[in-house]
Structures are given as structure tokens and as C-alpha cells.
Simulated assay, not measured.
Amino acid sequence: MGHWWERNILEPGKLPLLLALFSFVVTFVVTRVIVRLIRAGKGPFGNVKAGGLHIHHVVPGVVLTIVGGFGAVASDRHGAGGAIAAVVFGIGAGLVLDEFALILHLDDVYWSAEGRKSVEVVVITAALVGLLLAGFSPFGVNDLSQAELQDRGGVIAFVAVNFLISLVALSKGKARTAVFGAIVPLLALAGAVRLARPASFWARRFYGRRPRARARSLLRAYRHDRRWAGPRRVVQDWIGGKPDPSPARLPRGG
């Protein structure tokens, strides 16, 4: 274990990345716990206000992200400065992406259905960073044997091919499949060979003169969304909290 840690984490300089990912995930979890306690009126926590203005945690998150980012650029990734900057950056990124939906909509949609986008972005970001962390780095590792070079070369070729397959899945409008398919190759392959979603680039490019394919794409997307919308909401609500019910809309007058 010690040899693996040295060769694959410390020597290629991945420790800051590991610290950034760990602090990012912990910050998101802690933040969600605190805001859910505030929402329930429990615990000693409360909203931060200044002059009657509610200060969202994306504000300190932006500051920490900037400080950590510039600190990482100015630091040696093998030194203590790089590790500290990575932790600061991870904390800031966790605070910012926890309120990603607010930035996207320019509105306080934290506890609305639109606020679920924050949870999706955090999960996808953690998965991508985890992929970078788990991958074999061919750079920064010294004195590789011929067998190690061949192993790493094979891994790089496999990752490159899987990345291209994931791009095909992405072009078919399957963003989640493409992202997680970068980790689970069979998932990417399944997304690449199946029908594209109706509004995707692939459907616009290749289904324009194929009405049967376009109709099958619409039907499959409808069935897929109807089947998985409920379970996906349950998982998102478990992670981020159940959103407030949408207010009923009054009928328009004649």
C-alpha cells in the first residue's frame, strides 16, 4: 500500500487533487446538513445576514475558490503550500456548487425543484475529479520499468477510446451516461449505441430525414423519463433535501 501511495499519489503530485476532492465532498455534505437543520428550525445555526441582506454561502465560496486557485498556481504541488491551497479551493468549490442552481437561474431556487441541479452538478463534479484521481498518470513518475510503461500505455489507450465513446453518448444527449461512462466503460458503450434523445445534437444531425427514427427516439425518451424520474427525485431529495411544493397557479381570466 505504501509503495502504491508513493508511486501513484505522491510522486505524480496527486495529493493536492485528493485533498481538494475530499474537502469538496465534506464541505458539500456539511453544508447540506446545516441548511437542512436551519430549514427545520433545529440546532444553533441560522442564516447569515448583513444589514438585512441574506448572504448566501456562494459568496464566501467564490472568495475561497479564488484564493485557493491562485494559491495553487503560485505553490509547488509537492509542498505544503499546494496542499493548503487545494483544501481551500475544495471548500470554496463545495460552497459554490452547492448553490449552482441559484447562479444558473439568478434566483433563490435552493429549495425548489430547480435547486436539484445543484445536487446533479456536485455529483458529476465529484465523479470527474475521482476519475482523474484514480487514473494512472504517466507524467511525474520516475524510473518506470518496461512492464510499467506498457501497462500505463495500455491504460492510456483504453481511456482514450472510452473517452471517444463517452463523447458519442454526450452528443446523443446523455450527459449523465457520458460522465459516469468515463468510469464504467459498459455504461458509455450502452449510451453510445442506443437511440439519441430527441433534442440532442445527434438527433438533429442524423434523424432529420428519418421520421421513424425520430418517432422512436421521442417514444423511448418519454418512457425512460417516466420510468426513472421518480427514483432520480428520491435520490436527489435524500442527498439535498426535499424541495418546497410549487405554488398552485391561478387560472387566467377570460
Rank of each mutant, 00 (worst) to 15 (best):
K174R: 12
A175C: 01
F45H: 07
V119S: 01
L250R: 15
L167A: 07
G254P: 11
L187A: 11
I55P: 04
R232N: 14
V168M: 08
G43W: 05
R36Q: 14
V122W: 01
V59Y: 02
V30S: 10
P251T: 09
G135T: 10
A113R: 15
H54W: 14
A40L: 10
W228D: 08
I38Q: 09
N142K: 14
G71W: 03
G90Q: 06
V129F: 03
V234T: 12
F22N: 08
P245Q: 02
K42F: 09
D143M: 06
R77I: 06
G230K: 11
P44W: 07
A86Q: 13
R194N: 12
G208I: 07
P44N: 05
I103T: 09
V141P: 01
L195M: 09
G41S: 07
E11L: 04
G153Q: 09
L132W: 01
F100C: 10
A86N: 13
I183N: 02
G46H: 11
S23A: 15
S145G: 14
S200Q: 07
D143I: 07
P12E: 03
R249K: 14
A86C: 12
A93F: 09
K172V: 01
F89A: 14
V67Y: 05
I183V: 15
L187V: 15
W238K: 05
E6Y: 05
F70A: 10
L219M: 10
E99C: 11
A192H: 03
R209P: 00
V26A: 14
W228E: 07
D108G: 10
H57E: 11
F136W: 06
I55H: 03
G82Q: 08
R152T: 06
G90L: 06
F24T: 09
G68Y: 03
G254T: 05
G140E: 00
W238S: 09
L97D: 06
T31P: 00
G13W: 00
W202E: 11
R204A: 13
I124N: 05
R227M: 14
R39V: 12
A80N: 11
G254D: 12
I9G: 04
P231F: 04
R209W: 08
A196W: 10
P16W: 00
R227W: 13
R220A: 07
V88G: 09
A126T: 11
G181K: 03
R204H: 15
D143A: 14
P198T: 12
S166F: 00
V33E: 11
A169C: 07
L250W: 04
R32P: 01
G41K: 09
G51V: 13
P60Q: 02
G71I: 03
K242F: 11
G43M: 06
L64Q: 12
G254H: 05
A178E: 02
F163G: 11
R223M: 11
K42V: 09
V63C: 04
G135A: 15
V35M: 10
V59S: 02
N8F: 14
R223P: 00
Y222M: 12
H57R: 00
A50G: 01
L15W: 03
A80K: 10
E6I: 04
E148K: 04
L164N: 01
S217K: 02
F24W: 08
G208E: 11
